[in-house]
Structures are given as C-alpha cells and as structure tokens.
Amino acid sequence: MAIMYALKSSDNEIFEVEQKVIEQSETIKKMIEDGAATGEIPLQVSSKTLAKVLEWCKQRQHKTVENENDDNKGKRKKERDEDDDIKEWENKFSDELKADKDVLFDLLLASNYLDLPALLSFLCQLVADMVAGKMPEEIRRMFNIENDFTPEEEKAITAEHGWAFQP
C-alpha cells in the first residue's frame, strides 16, 4: 500500500501523490523527514505548475520502477523501446512548455525551489536550445525582455571601434 501525501498549491488546490513520486524532490523529502508534513503540504507553487512538476515526477518514477523489475532477458530491446518512449514523452512535454513560456518560467523556479535537479537541468537545456541561433532582438521578443540598455550603453556596444568594458 503506497503512502499518499496531499500537496497544496499556492492557489489552494490539493494534489494527492504517492510518497515515492514526491520524494524525488529533496525539499519535500526533507519536510517529510522533519515531520512537517502532517496533513497537507503547502507549497509556493501554482496549481498549473505543480501539475507539470508531478507529470515529470511520475514519468521519472515510472521509468525507475520498470528498470528495477527488469530481468536481463530482452532488456536491451526493452531499453531501446523505453528510450524511444521517454524521448517521445519529453518532446511532447517540451513542446507544451515552449508554447507557454509563463509555465516554463514558473516551472524553472519550482524545480529550483523543490530541488529537482534532473528537471532543472532538463528545463535549462530546453531554454538553451530555444536561445541557440537567435539574435538579441529575437531573444528579447521570445522571452518578453525589455531592452534596458541606456542609449549610451547601446552606443558603446554598437560603436564601430568601441569596447563596452575596459579593464
């Protein structure tokens, strides 16, 4: 019988989750160990983002459980299939995040706050891939960034022979 925990999002939505799934988060694991987790665990994460976090955790959990149950026979093929499955899942997950950058932003913060290194690394790679090959103006548009260089600084950057920073 799996132990269930109730996670409460910042907008007061309750998520019932298995302990094994949620223990991937070092932050929550610590809260459970410290005994702070009686009843609902309040988290500073919105329900929309928390749903994404749990989606990720469940996928990871699924993967580790299956690996444990594997016997050697046919493992290779199974692994290969699994890899394909995971890739497909990750691609879908990334595409959703790319379409809604607010969730991506929030999910980055959440993965940091909940101490989920694998998710954090995955997301940072995703953002890096999005940035790659883009010009500064495109990056600003994509990530809702305001050009906050003063005209003088801009001038310093773009002046023909100017160097923005002299040591």
């Binding site: 940035v131 790659a132 500064p136 906050d148 950057i157």
Partner: peptide, 11 residues
C-alpha cells in the same frame, strides 16, 4: 549564442 544573450538585457 552567449554573446547574443549578453546583448539581450542588463541582468
């Protein structure tokens, strides 16, 4: 890519 990011904004 790094130089482009450096040119995006101050932070």
């Amino acid at each position: 890519d790094i130089s482009h990011c450096a040119a995006a904004c101050l932070s």
